[in-house]
């Protein structure tokens, strides 16, 4: 290929490595605030008696909230100009493909999380490939993210993708 590839050697060398790890405590009030912001008043997230009558030991964390339980803290000085924190991607830069778009996300939920569970997230860079689309070349990055609780029980695993374009 006479054209220079979009994937620099430094990024390519990171396939298979851990992009990010994070831990956090699952908190009932945090997930209930999230659920309220979604307008999601499912009693499994709010009503202990209801949840117990359906086989859970207590109210459970909404599955889609789990990803937020491990978010860290960003100082105002550490934000990007657009206000985002940009921590989750493991700082893959792609100087030859700076425009980014969220691709998709696919998650399998294995077990519920409860109030005060300690969750550990480990995100690995699964693949980085250059592709040719209708509107030109792009880089497709795929991460695999695994969430476990304090007993090392698998709660969820997710595959996430991002598209970077020149």
């Amino acid at each position: 290929m006479s054209e220079q590839g979009l994937i620099d050697a430094e990024s390519a060398s990171r396939v298979g490595t851990v992009a990010a790890t994070a831990t956090g405590e699952v908190n009932r009030r945090d997930w209930q605030r999230w659920a309220a912001a979604v307008g999601d008043h499912n009693p499994l997230w709010f009503d202990t008696e209801y949840a117990r009558a359906r086989g859970y030991r207590d109210i459970i964390c909404p599955p889609l909230f789990l990803q937020y339980a491990v978010l860290g803290v960003t100082a105002l000085d550490g934000l990007r100009p657009d206000g985002s924190s940009g921590a989750a991607s493991g700082s893959l830069a792609f100087p030859r493909a700076p425009r980014r778009m969220a691709g998709g996300e696919s998650t399998t939920f294995h077990a519920p999380a409860y109030h005060r569970d300690e969750v550990e997230m480990v995100r690995t860079i699964e693949s980085i490939v250059e592709k040719q689309g209708r509107s030109g070349r792009f880089v497709l990055v795929t991460w695999r993210t695994v969430y476990r609780n304090q007993r090392a029980e698998l709660l969820a695993d997710a595959t996430t993708s991002m598209i970077a374009r020149p």
Binding site: R33, W34, A37, V38, L71, T74, L79, S84, S85
Partner: peptide, 10 residues
């Protein structure tokens, strides 16, 4: 409220 609940400053 959703940005606040997800710690999203964008």
């Amino acid at each position: 409220f959703f940005s606040a609940a997800t710690y999203n400053g964008h």
